[in-house]
Write a protein that binds this DNA or RNA. Sequence first.
DNA 1: GCCCAGGAGCCCG
DNA 2: CGGGCTCATGGG
Length: 227
Amino acid sequence: MNKIQQIYDYLMKEYGHQGWWPVTPLCCRGGKTLPIYGVAIKSDKQKFEIIIGAILTQNTAWKNVEKAIIELNKKDLIDINKILKIKHNELAETIKSSGYYNQKAKSLKSVAEFLKKTPIAKLEKMELSKARHALLDVKGIGNETADSILLYALNKPIFVVDAYTKRIVTELKLVKKDATYHEIQELFMSNLQADPKIFNEYHALLVEHAKRFYSRKPYGVNCPLEN
DNA sequence: GCCCAGGAGCCCG
DNA sequence: CGGGCTCATGGG
């Protein structure tokens, strides 16, 4: 029996479709409308918004990121050239609610610079591992952020491993305690079909499940996946 | 007050 | 190359 597949089936039955990643609708740019979930076909601007969100959400609650994205929209800053042009202090101030705003402002400028040389369309055409390495060369983009961008913005078949994912598979003893990012990613990818829709849904379901059973120590108490 | 959130870089042994 | 430190707001 494939436990990874079984867990997916259970989570899907339990929580249903999650529809990550939320994106601001094109009609509401500049307004204060919240990003909505489940947009299937994305514009380049929405893809850039996902890239921005992937950086802003590093070790940060999504709610705080949402506020920052709304502020960026008010100033019409979901735009590579405008991110490049704006002064560091104003950018940092705009994304303040997402925390680590000085580091993240720098990271946003680094990605914008990268995307100037390597436009999203070009990145999409690259071989997956090359695109991944290119993203990892950007300061402020590590394993999870790179994979989030590849999966959620570019619709590439790669599995995102976050702290929650690691906690769950570690507690369930599906991997050893000191398993690396890559080992955990392999566990999922080698047991599932390489379908971005499944990887997208699965990661979101793991986050939802972890919020309920793995957000405070001791982790995994009464977790139904134990069975 | 304390812990935690959809991490990453850097430094040090 | 692994472990500890730093970055920071906002909610429970």
